[in-house]
Design a protein around this nucleic acid. Structure first.
Lengths: 149, 149
DNA sequence: TATTGTTATACTCTATAACTATA
DNA sequence: TATAGTTATAGAGTATAACAATA
C-alpha cells in the first residue's frame, strides 16, 4: 500500500504540473486512447476506473469543458452516452506521456529486475482477478426495496 | 495500482462501517498502537503516514475529539507534541482488527501462495526503499526545475 | 422493473500559506 | 535561521439519493 501510495502521489503531481490533469482524469483519457476508435460508453468507462457513476459524470464534465472529450448519445441504445477522446485530448496525452513514463520508470521499474517484473505481474495479476471475482468493492447488500409483488 | 485501489476501498468501507474510521485514521491509530508506550511525536507520525503536516493536525483533531488519542507537549522539546493512544483508542482498534484482518485476508492473502508472499514482500520492500531514497513525494522546487522551455 | 446517466447536495479531505513559538 | 505544529482558507473530489428517460 505504501508503494502504490507513493507512486500515485508522484504520478499525480507530475500530471498536474505538466498537463493540469488529475490521476483519475489521466486514467480516463488513457483508457479512451487505448479503446478501439477512442470511444467507450460511460458505464464501461466507470467499470474500468474504480469510480461511481456520479463521480465519472463529474470528471467527464470537466474533461468535456476543456475539449478533451466529447459526449454523444449512443445510436443503438438511447440510454447510453458514448465518450470519445478528441484530437486535443490525444495531443495532451501524447504531451504528458513521456514524462509520465519517466516518472514511473524512475520510481518503479528502475528498482525491478527482469525476473522481479514478471514475478510481480504474475502475482498481482492473479490477485486482481481474484478481487474482481469476490465482492469487488463494497459489500453493500443493497437495501431491498421489495414492494409487494 | 488497481489491486491496491480495490484493497484500499474495501478496507476503508469496512473500517467506516465497523468503527467509523477512515483508512488514514486507522493507520494513525495502528501506528500508535505499535509504538513503544503507544506514543509518537506528530512529526514522526507524519513521516510514517504519507501526509502533510496540516492534514495530520486535522485528523489528529478528529481523533482527539473522539477521545481516541491525546495530544500533550513533549517534555524535552517544547516545540513538539506527543500523540498517545488512549484506552478507548486501543479498544476501538481491537474491536475493528479481526474484521479488518479478515477483509485483507480474503481479498489479498487468500490468493497468495507462500512463495508468492515472500516474493512480493521482497520485491516491494526493495521498491519501497528505493522510492524513499529518491525525491519521495513532492519534488516541488517551487520554481520549475527542468522545464522544457 | 431494470438500466443508463445526470443532478443536487452535503461532506470529507487535502494542500498551501501565513502564523506562533521554540531550538 | 530552522524546526514543530496549528490555523485559516479554499478548493477538489466523492458518494448518496432523487430524478428522468429508455429498454
Amino acid at each position: 500500500m505504501e508503494v502504490s501510495s507513493l507512486l500515485q502521489h508522484a504520478v499525480d503531481a507530475h500530471l498536474r504540473a505538466n498537463g493540469d490533469l488529475s490521476y483519475v482524469q489521466f486514467q480516463i483519457l488513457a483508457r479512451l486512447t487505448d479503446a478501439p476508435e477512442g470511444r467507450l460508453r460511460m458505464t464501461d468507462l466507470a467499470d474500468g476506473v474504480v469510480y461511481s457513476r456520479s463521480g465519472l459524470t463529474y470528471q467527464a464534465g470537466l474533461l468535456e469543458k476543456r475539449g478533451l472529450i466529447t459526449r454523444s448519445p449512443a445510436p443503438d441504445d438511447e440510454r447510453s452516452i458514448v465518450v470519445a477522446v478528441t484530437d486535443v485530448g490525444r495531443a495532451l496525452v501524447a504531451q504528458v506521456l513521456p514524462g509520465h513514463i519517466d516518472v514511473v520508470r524512475r520510481l518503479l521499474f528502475d528498482s525491478l529486475e527482469r525476473a522481479d517484473l514478471s514475478a510481480l505481474s504474475g502475482i498481482l495479476g492473479r490477485v486482481r482477478s481474484h478481487m474482481r471475482t469476490a465482492p469487488p468493492r463494497s459489500a453493500k447488500p443493497r437495501a431491498n426495496r421489495t414492494r409487494a409483488s
